[in-house]
């Protein structure tokens, strides 16, 4: 008996990434820098979120030649993004052989109502979520990994904190709710009762939960890990800083030793005096239409 694409092997790859940092890269050279700094995986993209935000227009799945060249450049797993609901883009990425597909709000949604039915794929999916209901709906559709949405390309951690706290607090609350209340909770969350029961029983999601959206310093990574993230996605934070190699390594070190402030000090000092994290955006000044996190629900 040899069975591929099972829930166990799909969720399993996400489990192997725990405690690690997944970095956005737009060239094979950047992918090599990320691997060399200790990234556990890379996200192959044409443009990082900060540039997508600046450029406007429609953001689609990346050029597949580019994704292939990044797969050829590193030995660590390679992820790539598809538009929400764009199952044909996902079919193409699966046929290409990427290791993980991110159905991402960073790209322009292809379907305003439905997400991809991820059970139909051998390749595992990661999806963003702002709260527990959204996380459980994505898992019901077959997501093998959940990440906070945060606000990609903003350099501002505030949304990731909001989403991580929201998910974790809602799970904590479920663990003390009497059994007879769970159906009503499932209705309020807009999530299947079975998954709500499981979260209440286990005190955690049935899949790995990472943080994404706004991480730009070692201390940001340590903050999110202490808030319960099991690993970190860094998008623009590395290659929009003025010293990508140093930032990549520092964020890896801080993610591993997130509970040890001395390591955060050492990692931050190692960035050097002239180190500057990416410029950030105060999200209160951003019009509603430019917020990425509200895409998909």
């Amino acid at each position: 008996m040899t069975e591929t694409g099972t829930i166990t092997v799909k969720r399993g790859l996400a489990q192997m990434l725990k405690g690690g940092v997944i970095m956005d890269v737009v060239t094979p050279e950047q992918a090599a820098i990320a691997q060399d700094a200790g990234a556990v995986a890379v996200m192959a993209l044409e443009r990082i979120p900060a540039d997508i935000r600046a450029d406007g227009g429609v953001a689609r799945m990346s050029n597949l030649e580019l994704v292939q060249s990044i797969m050829d450049a590193v030995t660590i797993p390679v992820m790539a993004k598809v538009r929400i609901g764009h199952f044909a883009e996902a079919q193409a990425l699966q046929a290409l052989g990427v290791d993980f597909i991110d159905e991402s709000e960073v790209l322009t949604p292809a379907d305003e109502k439905y997400h991809v039915s991820k059970h139909l794929f051998t390749t595992p999916f990661v999806c963003g979520a702002r709260d527990l209901g959204e996380a459980l709906r994505r898992i019901a559709e077959g997501a093998a990994m959940i990440r906070s949405k945060g606000e990609a390309g903003s350099g501002n951690i505030v949304e990731a904190v909001r989403h991580m706290r929201s998910i974790r607090d809602a799970i904590k609350e479920l663990t003390v709710v009497p059994e007879e209340e769970l159906t009503a909770r499932a209705r309020d969350l807009g999530a299947p009762l079975e998954l709500v029961r499981e979260a209440a029983r286990e005190g955690r999601l049935p899949v790995v939960l990472f943080c994404a959206g706004g991480v730009s310093t070692p201390a940001d990574a340590a903050l999110m890990m202490q808030l319960g993230a099991e690993g970190i996605f860094v998008g623009s934070g590395i290659f929009k800083s003025n010293s990508p190699k140093a930032f990549a390594k520092a964020i890896v070190d801080a993610t591993t030793h997130f509970e040890d402030p001395n390591v955060i000090v050492a990692a931050s000092k190692a960035l050097g005096k002239g180190a500057q994290a990416m410029a950030g955006i105060d999200l209160r000044n951003l019009p509603e239409s430019e917020l990425l996190a509200s895409r998909g629900n």
Binding site: T2, T4, V9, G12, L13, M16, D99
Partner: peptide, 27 residues
């Protein structure tokens, strides 16, 4: 292989007895 070849395999491990072991191979 890569992730799409990750698999669950019933693996014979004689030192653990006759019952095959449910082995999960990931990349």
């Amino acid at each position: 292989g890569r992730q799409n070849d990750s698999a669950e395999v019933a693996l014979a491990i004689p030192v653990l007895g006759a019952e095959p072991f449910p082995a999960i191979f990931i990349r």
